[in-house]
Nucleic acid binder design. Structure first.
Lengths: 247, 247
DNA sequence: AGGGCGGCTTGACCTGCATCAAGGTGCGTC
DNA sequence: GACGCACCTTGATGCAGGTCAAGCCGCCCT
């Protein structure tokens, strides 16, 4: 499993920000002392209920920030209403675009969600003054870019079964850490999963049923999944489940 | 057409680097005087023939740089051989990952290609010393991220016809600037197009034929496309071709 | 308890694209 | 000129996943 990397679009949650109570990586990890305090004094928190829209495509963006609790989604859409989720934000993921005035995605709270926000303008000013901050954000952006490109492989080349298995494996990977058996409460509705996977809700439902009947996963209600054998799930996802990386 | 943005993965070619003979945006636009000279002294050039591999997935990366002439592709693949192109590099696009030791993609020359390269280590050192440089790279990474996410919408939700039309529109957009009628020589084989679009080579061929029979595009040989009516092509691509953006 | 509703599942059918197969075109080479 | 080869096109067929439709489950509300 060495080269299996969570492909969710914003899988930035590394455990390298222990000092910060809100795990605000972008900020915490790059500042010290007075700078950290100055940034901390700029923070504010805001919450949304599940289903609420945080920003529409094209909205002006006055803030940047990161997810403290909950789950939010980034979605792009075509004129005729077809939608594609392009990012999934989990706690510690960064949201916003230093240097950009508008968001090109719709941002929606998938569950109840709390964000830690900074006003964009002063944050951008700090970007120029604190060298570590922008290189930190650069690193995060490269992570996001890798994840987005991994997801392009999923969208372009995997079957419905593999897509669903990939998503479930990712969610388990991020949510479950080291529990045996692995389990997670799905933060997404079937509709949101379909939107992420480039499928329809019916196909997602059928593939989950099939994985359950196969014994690859178990369900408790519709929103809790358990997995006794991650390598079987990874194999269903089209990854090698055994830890060997071919050349 | 106001919100139609080229969705090719690395569409960073803005005309804001006029001063630099090689249009090396990431560097030119962020440095002045002595710094520019210092960076310039680190440059080297290297060329590859069409079809040659520039780097394999997992290769160590000793350089970063950008495309001077030609066209290169970034590809990810599954164990069973399925491949997905995740980025297309055209002149002025940046290649490489400051702070990263390996490339997660296979990089291949689609046409003969010349890169302008910097050794990664000294480049990274400069990143810390020249504040504008990392914020510049951050901006470029955010552009790439937007483009990758736009492409996720194409991969996940568009039909084969729309995918092909989207790709052709993008290539015309980048190659043709203001010519009427728009025309471009395709830098990609049908196979590479299929790889980018998540389709098979046969489907790409059929859809190009169909667009030609429709009168949406014209061909000269297999590799030169002409388009008299861009809005018709955009409509075939599932974009609105008339310049109005619905709320 | 009953009704309404959002979210999920299942079934029947259809279609768009993949697959398999054959043949065409242009170009370099002997 | 004709052979070989890479690239492209076209046709026939099959199937994965989309579409349409019906119904179930859990939950809130009164």
């Amino acid at each position: 499993m060495s080269h299996f990397d969570p492909a969710l679009s914003l899988s930035l949650a590394r455990a390298d920000c222990a000092a910060c109570p809100i795990r605000h990586r972008a900020v915490c990890a790059s500042c010290e002392g007075a700078e950290l305090e100055r940034l901390a004094s700029m923070k504010s928190y805001r919450s949304w209920k599940a289903g609420e829209t945080i920003a529409l495509e094209g909205d002006a963006l006055a803030h940047v920030g990161s997810v403290v609790t909950g789950c939010a989604t980034l979605t792009r859409s075509l004129e005729d209403g077809r939608m594609q989720m392009v990012g999934l934000l989990l706690p510690s993921d960064f949201l916003g675009r230093p240097g950009r005035a508008v968001t090109p995605y719709e941002v929606v709270a998938a569950t109840d969600v709390t964000l830690c926000l900074f006003e964009r303008k002063p944050f951008e000013r700090m970007l120029g003054e604190v060298p570590n901050l922008s290189s930190r954000l650069l690193e995060m952006s490269l992570d996001e870019l890798d994840a987005a490109r991994d997801w392009m492989l999923v969208l372009g080349r995997k079957t419905a079964r593999e897509k669903v298995a990939s998503l479930l494996a990712n969610i388990l990977h991020r949510a479950a850490a080291a529990d045996r058996p692995l389990w997670a409460e799905l933060p997404l509705t079937r509709e949101a999963m379909a939107s992420y996977l480039g499928l329809t809700i019916e196909t997602v439902s059928r593939q989950i049923t099939r994985l359950r009947k196969d014994g690859t996963i178990r369900l408790e209600g519709a929103r809790v999944i358990l997995c006794d054998d991650l390598s079987a799930l990874l194999e269903a996802a089209g990854e090698d489940g055994d830890g060997t990386s071919p050349g």
